[in-house]
């Protein structure tokens, strides 16, 4: 007696279907067999059956969507603050305040 399942599996075989089943299965299948020619498979269905082409199609659609987002003005949110308009700059100058990003930094006296 061996305890090696691989050797045992190799020594046996799968259960065989009974012989009368062949006639019964074929008779039932052929009874449902239509003599009409099978529907012609459209070329686009053949293409769609390919996994690589499906992936390429999805990648192309994603690329188009990304391009559309980049090229359409205003589609992407602006990440930086817009520059001040001329009127805003004048208001700041009139009030005597320097814009925060311009002008010399105050120098602290050492004495």
């Amino acid at each position: 007696m061996t305890a090696d399942p691989l050797r045992l599996l190799a020594a046996g075989r799968a259960p065989q279907p009974p012989a009368p089943l062949r006639e019964a299965a074929l008779a039932r299948a052929l009874a449902a067999w239509s003599d009409a020619p099978p529907a012609r498979i459209h070329w686009i269905d053949r293409l769609w059956a390919s996994r690589r082409l499906r992936l390429a199609w999805v990648a192309a659609m994603l690329l188009l969507a990304a391009l559309d987002l980049v090229l359409t003005p205003g589609a992407l949110p602006k990440l930086s603050r817009p520059g001040a308009t001329l009127d805003e700059a004048r208001t700041v100058l009139r009030a005597g305040l320097a814009p925060p990003s311009s002008g010399p930094r105050p120098v602290r006296s050492s004495s």
């Binding site: 279907p17 089943l21 019964a24 074929l26 039932r28 299948a29 449902a32 099978p38 498979i41």
Partner: peptide
């Protein structure tokens, strides 16, 4: 075994009725 025989018949029935799809099976 009895149920398996019915299943085999059903499987061949499906293969016969959907045989057009077999051409696209990779």
């Amino acid at each position: 075994r009895a149920a398996a025989e019915e299943v085999v018949q059903e499987a061949f029935l499906r293969l016969a009725t959907t045989r057009a799809d077999l051409a696209t099976v990779r």
